[in-house]
Amino acid sequence: MREVSAVKFWILGVAVCCMAVVSATADQIQLTTGETLRGTIVEQSKEHVILNHSVLGLLNIASGDVASVSVVQAAQSEGGSEATGKLAKKPDTGVRQVPGHGSGALPGLFDMEMFENWDIRILMGLSGSDGNSQTSNIRIGLEADRADKHHRARFKSTYNYATSEGETTRNQFNAETTIDWLMPDSPWFSFVQGVYDFDEFKAWDHRVSGFAGFGYEMIMSPDVELIARTGGGVTKEFGGADDLRPEGLVSAGLLRWNVTDRQTVTGEVVFFPDLSDLERFRTIAKVDWQIKLDHQEGMKFKIGLEHEHESFTDGIKKHNDVKFYGTLVVDF
């Protein structure tokens, strides 16, 4: 059993290293919005830069949207240095925009515009022990964001699995999609949100939720973005009481706080009251601290804490679920 666990960790470790090598050897474009795109630069001129992205396909990016370009030479010079070119920066207007929009971006994945200009991240975290006690913990995730002056969209998913002495102690999956419709020259916006949860150790097996409502941008500065949401919807649980109940949603979200050039804090607090029984409710609170790694552009380390409380259980399951985690974040 221990040999099998060791093999699993070796395989996962090799996978992480391979992804790090791929990220380090790709050409990269730093946009004026602060985002980074990686791939193979096909063409570069005074008017534009064409990048072949592994997910988005060919992207035609106007030079005015580019802050810097870093090209990994096929045959590096002595010392293994990279060739880096700087383009003129545009002044920051403070307006959210999709990189490449309005600059003739070529079709991306499957020739569908909906897949273009997403900021995609993969999260990976591993820990374990073997000796007097045998434990293993795995946390993997996929996140994607896209924003322009009319829309803001985010998808995130996370899988957590843990064992202790050969017994499964955690087996969870969460996927969430949120789309905001922004109102020009107004801090108000409308939103829809869909959430799917699986948890082997809850009173239910699967939970599906859908919400809609309005939000307000309380702070939208270059370093801090703080918003609030309120709305309502329904939640359906499977594998337990199998009930369908109306729920409210009230939340405050710290989308971004740039503490320094290399450190960012994000967080969220959400309250879900049961509209059919106000004594029943659930809450979710989370905070993440993300640090850019010094020697790898596009790679970050994230430390996080998440707490979920359910006021109603089956009498056996616990009301509170707390998770601590540390993950490596790879940008694409």
Rank of each mutant, 00 (worst) to 15 (best):
F312N: 08
L106M: 07
G39Y: 02
F214M: 09
V192K: 05
R96V: 13
A83W: 11
G80H: 11
L109D: 00
Q97G: 09
S81E: 13
K300V: 00
K323M: 07
G240K: 08
E116L: 12
F155G: 07
V330Y: 08
D223S: 11
S133D: 10
V72S: 02
K323H: 09
R121C: 03
F324A: 02
G232V: 00
F110D: 05
G80N: 12
W204P: 01
L328K: 04
V72Q: 05
E247L: 02
W257A: 02
T327S: 10
N174S: 06
T178R: 15
E225M: 10
D261Q: 08
R146K: 15
A83K: 14
K8L: 11
N137D: 13
S251P: 04
G248I: 00
L142M: 12
D274G: 04
I303V: 15
L12V: 04
S221R: 11
E217H: 04
L109G: 01
V98D: 05
G39T: 01
V259F: 11
P99Y: 09
R146S: 08
I120S: 08
H53P: 00
T32D: 02
V16M: 10
A75I: 02
V287P: 00
K318R: 13
V16N: 03
N160E: 09
L182V: 03
F110I: 10
V192P: 01
G248W: 03
A26S: 12
T283I: 03
C17P: 01
F198Y: 15
L56K: 06
V270S: 14
A175I: 10
D294L: 13
S5D: 11
H48R: 04
A6H: 08
